[in-house]
Amino acid sequence: MKHPNFVLWLMAILVYAFLYIPLIVVVVYSFNDSRLNAEWVGFTLDWYGKLFRNEEMLIAARNSLIIAVSASVLATTLGTMAGLAIHRYRLKVLPILAFTPVAMPEILLGVSLLLFFLQVLNMTLGLVSVIIAHTTFSIGFVAIVVRARLQGMDESIFEAARDLGATPWQTFRLVTLPLIMPAIIAGALMSFTLSIDDFVITFFTKGVGEPILPIQIYTMIKIAVTPEVNAVSTLLMLLTLALVMLATRFDKTILHGR
């Protein structure tokens, strides 16, 4: 069985084709000089031009960026703490709190946060509520990456630092932190990507005022599909592609499932 057989290869190629063809189609049509996503008419950059003159789209992109940066900073800080704490101490409640939002259907988190923001906090939904919502589900992802990194490490390093007289803070700053840094950076990039991408939770916690990228895309898809959607999709794909490549470069454990 050292040489996987022909059938296996054929099926694998078909699956890869299934994964990539739809995305290639979107990219190709973003350069098509036609309002319809049907025949190839000719090459154009018009849809990109239209996109960059679309005021609301630009505001949406800016808002999404603000949300993603804030949420990933918060989630990385809290998620790193959670990952360290869960790895180091026998905690019962924290793992449940951190990992359940990752595992449950997104719609449940979206709905419960909507109720909480409106009923209990009585707040106006907007960028802040979306930032909080994104942080809530990203903490678990960061914690998983950080914990995975810690699990692969030799505990004796920390003992050695302690034996040499380092305080817990010194041990953390000089030994633990540099060692888990790749996981922290990977976690940060991951939570940024999750935030920029998220549709479901954003949909429930966004309110009405501020345009946000995924919601803008959703409205375009539902109301009037123009190749402008293809253009914005292509740009977003490039961005997340770069981020994921970067994240996997920093921490290979991401490749082995979450």
Binding site: F199, Y218, V229, T240
Partner: peptide, 16 residues
């Protein structure tokens, strides 16, 4: 492909 936007992946099938 799974890292590209969730809505875009659904939208692609609208075209196909």
């Amino acid at each position: 492909p799974f890292a590209s936007n969730f809505l875009i992946r659904i939208y692609a099938w609208m075209i196909i």
